[in-house]
Design a protein around this nucleic acid. Sequence first.
DNA 1: CCGTTCGTGTACCAATCGGTACAAATAGAA
DNA 2: TTCTATTTGTACCGATTGGTACACGAACGG
Lengths: 206, 206
Amino acid sequence: MPRIIAERADTLPAIAEVFREYGYEGASLALIGKATGLGKGSLYHFFPGGKEEMASAVLAEIDGWFETHMFGPLRDSREPERAIETMFDSVESYFRSGRRVCLVGVIALGDARERFAQPVSGYFKRWVDALADALVRSGRDRLPARALAEEVVAGIQGAIVLARALDDPGAFGRTVTALRVKTRPEPKVSRAASRTRDRSHTRRQG
Amino acid sequence: MPRIIAERADTLPAIAEVFREYGYEGASLALIGKATGLGKGSLYHFFPGGKEEMASAVLAEIDGWFETHMFGPLRDSREPERAIETMFDSVESYFRSGRRVCLVGVIALGDARERFAQPVSGYFKRWVDALADALVRSGRDRLPARALAEEVVAGIQGAIVLARALDDPGAFGRTVTALRVKTRPEPKVSRAASRTRDRSHTRRQG
DNA sequence: CCGTTCGTGTACCAATCGGTACAAATAGAA
DNA sequence: TTCTATTTGTACCGATTGGTACACGAACGG
């Protein structure tokens, strides 16, 4: 029999798309087999634990990607504001303007949530923590930074829901941009509109 | 045979909970039968179209509830700011601090989205429109009102995801409260003084 | 008292589910 | 070549899926 797939890791992107599209329960082995081009024999060879192991592997890979490209820089970068901007760039390209769904979020909403409670909560907890950390290091107080971080992460997840529901990728971009602006250090002394007001509240909190 | 269920509408809350918990695909007739206490015979008597008709009926009922309790008041109330506050109250109690999931959002994320595209997009479109309308009538300009409305609706959906993922209902409350504050006419003066001011901007729109 | 209608449970259907077993086929070492 | 370990396709398993058929029982009009 020919060897098509060299590594188990090569199958993960295709499997991830199936889980994204159909959810954990709806992702049947038939669909996964079609997406990967592998029969059950190969699938169970790579993932002896069946669907649960496939989902775990996919979640771990996603987690690793976010850890490398977003959480790590948010925590470690010496330019936290730049790391935050980069995070928003990554979010916009990764979720493809809301056309691509967040698998972790999907699992959190479904009944597979309990089975994957630890990776799911870990992913979101580390996201919020890392973003809050970057916000603190860019000059905000700890409590409002944490509140803003939660708001941003929730807003991104909601933007995906809204964009898909309305079938309007623009809704994703608009919402994410609004969140992006809100994380910038100097709030909203913007262009031409509120010239008369901004003098009165420059002495806000740190 | 005894008549337990008087009306078809009496089954909808139970069916809705099953769809919420397991999604459209995951909600099997066995689960629905158990939740309603009805056998397949009765279910197909009430819903000749099967699962699809059940889901449509549930979506319609949810839509009606939101239309009556939230969208309508947002559009029609002569006190738009009060209607907005009431909306947030309703959201907090309806979604039970994120323990209860938004079925429309769940369907929007899954592969049943296309099948129910019209009711799903209609629900969110009318929510955003109604909220934007209330925000305009409470004194905001059209464009920022619409942007804020989208941000709020997305934020609510995301708060559900986040609260469930973290298994922390507090995250829902915090995020929703932040959104609520943001919709208030005078952002961040002190606590109670805003009531004396609103006389001054009734000259806004007509 | 009968007959129709409505509500209900149950048996059944083909299809598909996740998972197992296993034999065929390949690649690499000898 | 020959042997062995690794990949692979496929047949099969019991359970469950959405859906149909139908017969039984209560309610109701005559």
